[in-house]
């Protein structure tokens, strides 16, 4: 039924157009970037509105400045100590990105192993679930004891947080391959390696990217959780210090930078998706209108 409707849809949307391949490719990338820009302006407007409300509330003196500082004071704090904030942002970014990268490698590799070996899947799944449900803030102190006071325990917590959505989404993607595609591959005499690189893995990429987007935000949380438990640098440390000193402008600044870090990472993943999977991105926008 679904196949029928997509075919009809495709037929209606396929006039005889045959531009040169290079032109099409370029137009495709350009068009998807344009779509990307178009899809970003609304959330940006909402964000701006929130800032206006924040500014209005503080300017009208509705709350005490030591509870909620104004946007202006928050910005002043950052501008007055750019070196300080830059250093701590760099530390947290480093932990986040390193943790995210390790989570991708470990997550994808274990997903592939799990899909190809049901035995491994059965024995590994409970362990995975256990690692996911255990509150990270509760085991973070243990990592400090084991791995010391440096960046390593923070990276480990970030990996632990980001790993799970990547594994789940990759396993789902690899398993949702059309069985006919695999049969077809068998009649072509393809080995398991060829089937994986040419059919199965590319087909799983849309799922993988969905997992990466969740994981990107989780990695930031992981790094900051690690810093909360014991650190002398990083945005988590900045926030804890500011909290102890009742220095709400610094606290707000730390929070904002941290959120921005998560958003930047998320957008980076999404941008990569648009560039790597133009075929999927374009179909996804179709999907919104045809309720596929």
């Amino acid at each position: 039924m679904a196949a029928q409707s997509t075919i009809e849809h495709r037929e209606s949307s396929a006039p005889a157009r045959t531009p040169a391949p290079a032109a099409r490719r370029r137009a495709g990338a350009g068009a998807s970037l344009l779509r990307f820009a178009r899809s970003t302006w609304r959330p940006a407007a909402v964000l701006a509105a929130i800032f206006v409300v924040w500014w209005a509330v503080t300017a009208a003196d509705l709350v005490k400045p030591y509870l909620v500082p104004s946007p202006g004071t928050t910005l002043d704090v950052v501008l007055a100590q750019t070196g300080y904030f830059a250093h701590h942002t760099w530390i947290t970014s480093y932990e986040t990105i390193l943790g995210f990268a390790i989570a991708i490698v470990v997550g994808v590799v274990s997903a592939v192993v799990m899909v190809y070996s049901p035995t491994v899947e059965k024995s590994l799944y409970p362990l995975l679930l256990f690692a996911q449900v255990i509150p990270k803030i509760a085991i973070a102190p243990l990592f400090i004891v084991w791995l010391g006071f440096g960046l390593t325990p923070k990276v480990v917590v970030a990996v632990l947080m980001a790993f799970f959505p990547i594994v789940i989404s990759t396993v789902t993607g690899l398993k949702s391959i059309d069985p006919e595609m695999l049969q077809l591959s068998a009649t072509m005499g393809a080995g398991p390696g060829q089937t994986f690189t040419k059919i199965r893995f590319p087909a799983a990429l849309p799922h993988l990217f969905a997992g990466l987007k969740v994981a990107a935000t989780m990695a930031v949380t992981g790094a900051v959780v690690g810093e909360f438990v014991g650190a002398n640098e990083g945005l988590g440390y900045v926030i804890l210090q500011a909290n102890g000193n009742l220095d709400t402008p610094t606290l707000f600044a730390g929070l904002l930078i941290m959120s921005l870090l998560g958003v930047v990472l998320f957008v980076a993943v999404e941008l990569l998706e648009y560039l790597v999977l133009p075929w999927h991105a374009s179909r996804r926008t179709d999907a919104a209108t045809t309720s596929l």
């Binding site: 075919i7 495709r10 037929e11 949307s13 396929a14 045959t18 391949p21 075929w279 179709d286």
Partner: peptide, 13 residues
């Protein structure tokens, strides 16, 4: 002929 470089979602059934 003429459709060599079209992607599957640009082609009719």
């Amino acid at each position: 002929t003429g459709f060599e470089d079209a992607y599957p979602n640009e082609l009719s059934g």
